[in-house]
């Protein structure tokens, strides 16, 4: 079976700046694939190449088994795109936004009206159908953008940071909806810098930084490979704790006020530490994708 997305050695230069460097990945039908990375990693640029907004500097790109160079129009009928910036039409109401968008896909009016109402209900916006988009909260606007990207019943849904800036309730709602869409067999490509979002939704993902892919894999595998099953956090450690860990040969990350010990099992260590350093503040928890992300991309601030 053909991959829905087959990206090989994508490169994108803006003048001298390499925004995307040799990125390759493929997404199978029905899969939810994540592009993760800090700000400026090249996620949006990659996505803009996928739907033909940005021309590739080099590389090959096939969607639905067809090269985008020759089949862009046909391909665009089959994908739904939720761009990073909300680009709702402020001159139109909520419902009109969906209706006008449906015309860009040549949908017959009645079909469009049926779908629009269903989508508004699906995203909990049916009571705001006649509102101006500027009257919506940030969360509602974002949900409307996601709803709009589904108006053509796409075979591939591309979401660029669908939940950035949303409150926890809105985020949960969007996640639930995306999970439903996933169950119905929709192929999804998602960018995010929320690791809980990626861990929950993505079957596979890549972590990018500075335009390059650092790792690729299933969320759980990545955690096991790069962090271990458990992480031991020691808050306000003194020198004796550091010496103890070094002596026992544990790999740890020193953040000054906090130590992170990564291991397949920290259980024994936790017990020993609790015994030997009664006043040490220890916490044993599961390794997460966030640990992987921070280990790989570093803790330095971006932007």
């Amino acid at each position: 079976m053909d991959a829905v997305i087959a990206a090989k050695n994508l490169n994108k230069m803006f003048g001298n700046l390499t925004a995307v460097a040799d990125v390759s990945f493929s997404v199978a039908a029905g899969e939810c694939f994540g592009l993760l990375g800090p700000n400026g990693a090249g996620k949006t640029t990659t996505i803009r190449m996928l739907y033909g907004f940005s021309p590739l500097t080099s590389g090959t790109l096939e969607l639905f088994g067809k090269s985008i160079a020759e089949n862009l129009c046909d391909i665009k009928f089959r994908i739904g795109i939720c761009q990073q910036d909300n680009s709702l039409d402020p001159d139109l109401t909520v419902l009109e936004n969906l209706m006008v968008f449906s015309r860009y896909f040549d949908l017959p009016r009645q079909t469009a009206a049926d779908r629009a109402l269903k989508l508004l209900a699906f995203f909990g916006l049916e009571h705001r159908a006649a509102a101006k988009t500027s009257e919506l909260s940030g969360g509602m606007q974002r949900r409307l953008v996601v709803a709009r990207s589904l108006i053509n019943q796409p075979d591939l849904l591309i979401l660029d940071e669908p939940t950035t800036g949303l409150d926890p309730q809105s985020r949960q709602q969007v996640w639930t909806r995306l999970e439903e869409l996933k169950r119905s067999g929709l192929t999804i490509l998602l960018t995010t810098h929320y690791m809980d979002e990626a861990a929950r939704l993505c079957d596979r993902l890549v972590i990018m930084d500075h335009g390059k892919v650092l790792v690729e894999g299933k969320p759980a595998d990545l955690v096991r490979r790069h962090v271990g099953r458990e992480v031991l956090e020691i808050t306000r450690p003194d020198q004796s704790v550091r010496d103890f860990l070094a002596q026992r040969g544990h790999e740890f990350e020193d953040l000054g006020h906090r130590l992170l010990v990564y291991d397949q099992s920290c259980n024994g260590l936790f017990a020993d530490l609790a015994e030997q350093f009664r006043d040490a503040d220890c916490l044993l928890r599961m390794g997460t994708l966030e640990d992987v992300f921070l280990r790989l991309t570093g803790r330095a601030l971006r932007e």
Partner: peptide
């Protein structure tokens, strides 16, 4: 309004 950007996500060129 980013109207043209939004349109670029559809079959329009």
């Amino acid at each position: 309004q980013k109207t043209f950007d939004a349109m670029m996500a559809t079959p329009l060129t």
